[in-house]
Nucleic acid binder design. Structure first.
Lengths: 344, 344
DNA sequence: TATTAGCACTCGGGTACGTAGAGTGCTAAC
DNA sequence: GTTAGCACTCTACGTACCCGAGTGCTAATA
């Protein structure tokens, strides 16, 4: 479809615009060593590229900027993933040199490192807690009428919730209940906890505990209400403010709002999908993000769990670099997390 | 020092500027019903107030705005705390109607409510975790070489940390250690934990456990490294963007940066001090906040613990309203938290 | 004597205008 | 097929101008 020359001009135009944030003119382009054509030729080709819909003008006599379609073509066909500079690799891998013991810590550090390395905003989603498996349950009485329920999972994740207990309850009852719960629920995933709780566990409890009713009810409620957004980690939330593309305060507000709001996270980070994805401008579902591009990638968090990473930047994002960084990190992160769970 | 008329003019000028964000002129003021003087008189008085240093001009022929000193005087002597509108009180108190079981939840909700009610940014600091008292300790082995240490405090707060354990350790040793730790450390505040750990507890462990060394060492390290900023809660981080006073993106960046950075929190929220404090402009220690005012107040979180609340807004902040809101909330919050711990 | 009306002056913000520079499209020459 | 040349367009920027809201000062007034 496109001639070789058109491809070259498109590529160089996008590259230049990504780098400079200024509309690209024919004269400017003709001065580049990789472009051996005269400005006039370039103008002709640019006019054609505009007709096809890959380039746009900001006004009648301005240089060209890539259109959304242009970015899409660039990303799909013209992206030559240049290897990362060594110092970036070293810096990125420094995350794993601290030998952190907790998954959360590693993911948190990764989020920070990503934002630092890219100057964009990063969002990391940890592996789904609900698929973790119960390792131990305990109930610790706090006052005469409250206790805290603690669930430890196989990954070392600890969930805890305070719940009310009936007044005048015998401490031995709590112990009894704890024992029964442990017998019945260890090995069950958090996901299946409520099912199990209501089925067999309940009947067993009935047999052994007189006043199981109230205690069980409140315990169940406490354990099942999830703490949301617990495993979403951000890096460089303020990096948007660095981008010259964003100057409209209202838009910045909307964007930051959307990013922090937990309920929008699934729209930004498609939980199920594997591999690397790039969404450009209005390809994003959220209108607040129509001026952004989002690159997402999944990683393997051990135990058949996956997490995901998103980098959010302007459409004029350094795709080449970000893709390289995400490729590297997703691989390294998978390796590290698997190493951490190796002993399970 | 100041005549009655000067006081009136100063007060009305500040009030008007707080409300309109526009420099206040003599004509404008003379139209207000509470001001029975001619513009010329007002001009004379304003000139005097400027000479004293309470008012400023933005340029030679502009209206006046309050100087830092002017705000200070206003806050110290002219603030007539108008009672809050009923609907605000109702809204504020709705926090406590949900009967939340956890301190953290209540504080988190308060932060959100504050930002909503004030349109400024709120920061709430929970009571100092390190003064909580150990209620129970447990160690749950995860893999052959890692375990998770869990500390439950009297407030129902749960601290947990993963730490490596020596390979080939007997499970009974862990149990033994857990028992000893519980015997020796329950009732000790987190603050004093490291002291106790190193003194008597260590000697007891030595007696009962053969390979106590490695296990104890890593456990100690894990338990003592604090998870920072764990009890800082924000509300309305983005509200700064709503303020017409902030338009310089660079300043906004600096400000947001400073607010999020954990290490600056002590500078914003003076941890020790009691009661309500107002810091205006450069009275703040952080230069990034020289265009802000911060109102802080402490609250009583039960068990002789205190937390603090800060509202961060422009110098042109609605002091009257914020002071009323903080007064009310700090009282209510204290009551609620004390109620929650009543049974201890 | 304290207050006020009147007046000349100042400054920011908006609009109009002119110019320089970078860019375009088109045509004709190479 | 490519390019030089040219007329045209639009932005950015600087200057000029005016309007309105404000000030300070002086002189008149209650």
């Amino acid at each position: 479809m496109l001639t070789k020359r058109q491809l070259l001009i498109l590529k160089v135009t996008v590259d230049d615009y990504i780098q400079s944030a200024q509309p690209v003119g024919s004269n400017q382009l003709s001065k580049k060593p990789e472009i051996p054509f005269s400005p006039a030729t370039i103008r002709n080709e640019m006019a054609e590229l505009e007709r096809i819909g890959f380039l746009e003008k900001t006004h009648t006599s301005s240089g060209r900027i890539p259109s959304q379609k242009g970015y899409r073509y660039y990303v799909d066909y013209l992206l030559t993933p240049r290897p990362l500079p060594k110092e970036d690799i070293v810096q990125l891998r420094s995350i794993f040199e601290e030998r952190l013991t907790e998954t959360e810590e590693v993911i948190k550090r990764s989020a920070m490192m990503l934002s630092e390395l890219t100057n964009y905003t990063s969002i990391l989603l940890g592996p789904d807690v609900r698929r973790h498996i119960v390792k131990k349950l305990s109930i610790v009485p706090l006052t005469s009428d409250t206790a805290v329920a603690i669930i430890v999972t196989d990954t070392g994740h600890v969930e805890n919730r305070i719940f009310p207990i009936p007044l005048g309850l015998d401490p031995s009852d709590i112990e009894k209940m704890t024992n029964i719960l442990n017998e019945r629920l260890v090995g069950v995933s958090l996901n299946n906890l409520h099912l199990r709780l209501e089925q067999e566990t309940l009947t067993v409890l009935k047999q052994h505990l007189e006043r199981y009713g109230e205690l069980f009810h409140t315990f169940r409620q406490a354990v099942l209400s999830p703490h949301e957004d617990e495993n979403v980690y951000y890096g460089g939330k303020l990096n948007i403010l660095k981008q010259p593309d964003f100057h409209d305060l209202q838009k910045i507000r909307n964007l930051m709002d959307v990013m922090e709001e937990a309920k929008h996270i699934p729209m930004i980070l498609p939980v199920g999908s594997q591999g690397l994805h790039i969404r450009i401008g209005s390809e994003n579902t959220l209108t607040a993000m129509e001026d952004c591009s989002v690159i997402t990638v999944s990683y393997d968090a051990g135990e058949e769990q996956t997490g995901s990473i998103a980098i959010i930047g302007p459409k004029r994002m350094d795709y080449k670099r970000i893709v390289s960084i995400l490729d590297l990190l997703s691989g390294d992160l998978s390796k590290e997390l698997n190493r951490m769970f190796k002993g399970t």
